[in-house]
Design a protein around this nucleic acid. Sequence first.
DNA 1: CGGCAAATTGGTAGCGCTGCCAAAAAAACC
DNA 2: GGTTTTTTTGGCAGCGCTACCAATTTGCCG
Lengths: 356, 356
Amino acid sequence: MGAERWSSGRQVGQPPQQSGSNVTMEFKPQPTVTLAEVAEAAGVGESTVSRVLRNHGSFSGKTRERVMAAVERLGYVPNRIAGTLASTGSRLVAFVIPSLSNIVFPDVLRGASAVLEENRYQAVFSVTDYDPGKEEALAAAMLAWRPAAVMLAGCEHTEGTVKMLRASGCRVVELLDLDGDALDIAVGFSNRAAGRGSAAFLLKRGYRRIGYVGHDLNRDTRAGKRFSSFCETLGAHDAPLVAREILPGASSVENGRLGLERLLARTTDLDAVYFSNDDMALGGYFHCLAEGIAIPSKLAIFGYNGLDIGRATPQPLSTIRTPRVATGQIAAQLVVANAPPQAVDLGFELIEGATA
Amino acid sequence: MGAERWSSGRQVGQPPQQSGSNVTMEFKPQPTVTLAEVAEAAGVGESTVSRVLRNHGSFSGKTRERVMAAVERLGYVPNRIAGTLASTGSRLVAFVIPSLSNIVFPDVLRGASAVLEENRYQAVFSVTDYDPGKEEALAAAMLAWRPAAVMLAGCEHTEGTVKMLRASGCRVVELLDLDGDALDIAVGFSNRAAGRGSAAFLLKRGYRRIGYVGHDLNRDTRAGKRFSSFCETLGAHDAPLVAREILPGASSVENGRLGLERLLARTTDLDAVYFSNDDMALGGYFHCLAEGIAIPSKLAIFGYNGLDIGRATPQPLSTIRTPRVATGQIAAQLVVANAPPQAVDLGFELIEGATA
DNA sequence: CGGCAAATTGGTAGCGCTGCCAAAAAAACC
DNA sequence: GGTTTTTTTGGCAGCGCTACCAATTTGCCG
């Protein structure tokens, strides 16, 4: 396996002139058209233009046409910055998420953004890298935009973050974790229940010597909750966890593969392994395929998340499917509707699959 | 394979009172602290507070302390809406992307957001679903926020979109496609070169009866460019494409599997298949594993994107690795630096792998 | 056609902040 | 000590829009 680098021939950092035939020189800040100019052009008052554009209040059909014609003619684009400042309440929704590599969060954003766009809200986001301190700083930065709502992952936050959010007066939505007290709205499911359910399933299937392969749990508290509940359930059924392998860094296929390899190297008689995530589990699955370890007869594999790819492998992955897109959708709907504080449990689904 | 639904026991849509012990009633719009109040509290003028907070202009150390103390005491959070309106140029960067399911875009966002956050810019996004009309509408909505830059995928846009962007006076960055004229800045690589490179590689390896499995190309114009250049190159070497299977809908593992199954059902003697994407290719790979089709001796598989998972499969996937995160990073850096118009070619890397 | 209610419209005061300018204070100099 | 510089400060006019209110027009009825 080798690698070869290609580039289409154009240079990096070439001078502007070479970059295409129709480069416009956009260094002069173009004179932006304002609402006042539209009003003047249409021969009506400013407030009339504002009313027509927002379709709010009353105006005659004739006026409407005149205004729209002027808007068209001048290429007017309303300035929402000014609009938001003048009115009360922005139509911004701020997402402060731990990561974009973990498919969970793009999925949540996807669900949310569809709903938000329909309702003419704007999504703003920033990425914390699972760092609570960074979460606090980024949340503060987001609040400066006076969003209608702030959406965060989980319900563990620094004191400062909580205080700030409480004081902000904007809606707060905590996503994907119901195991804790919610500040305002919470949408998701119980990670503890997911951990318990996974353990119960493996036990029901008759596995007794169970191991675990996971990624850095200090940062991903939700994975930590699943793991600890998983272990408790095993313990309660006299089949305590036999071994574990925790890898530094993020959840990934490569880490799953490596983790299982290491775990098996030092533990001989495991009959099942629980992974912190589906990508880790897939790594484990590939390891078994490559090493000729029969699944599930010789070793069972169980994941978490219910990625699509796990359904297309030769043996479908046994896992728990989480309602990621729905979490985003519901969260957005509640915000748009300005719903009262509440916790919404969307549950999860255990996929039996064929690997456990 | 079965499924079972779980929920942790809490109800959906339960009344607010039950949703936690420390629910705050946030229906009274809290009186927000303003800069004027901070000034009053600190016993200085408004502009002094503004200067201290932005660390801009000059002020004495003593004043600085007084202001910061007042800020702390009142819990002041600056209002960027007002700040942006008053000053020139926002620190917003707008992303108008086709999808969040296709990992490409979260990767680009990831690269960009890291750079933007360092420079105190805010990322705003919306999702077009590969619909040019929606792109136009969403781009218009974004321009209303007067962003410092708009980032779009590819260089094919409606006339209206182009006109609007040109007139907006804000920076425009076109991502992931260099095969066309750029409006302003373009960052990415040549999809045509990628298609050609893939074909050349397969030909060099000695494959002559080559097929294609792809997703809906009308929507994903970049995949379409790769495909047409791929075909041209094959044709130029007297080994024209033998068969193709195009599946409606998005690129996915399941579609890849299904597509290869169908292709093989009606074409007997293929020796290699090019897939529109790595996830499609992985689907094909899994199909072969499940059906006992030897790879690459009986059938070679070649993908596109260089997903991490393709490196952890029993046989690493032969594919082209694209600089997705770097595209986002560079794009953001150019915007932050207010660089002149240019096209930046980041190239791509051909991963030989073991499936072709 | 007068008279009153309803539908339209325009004027204007902010929204909270920044940028400019001039005033005041401090520092430097002869 | 009296200037001249330099640094630090406050005042205030907008940024572009919306919300409120008052003025105007229109519609409708007897």
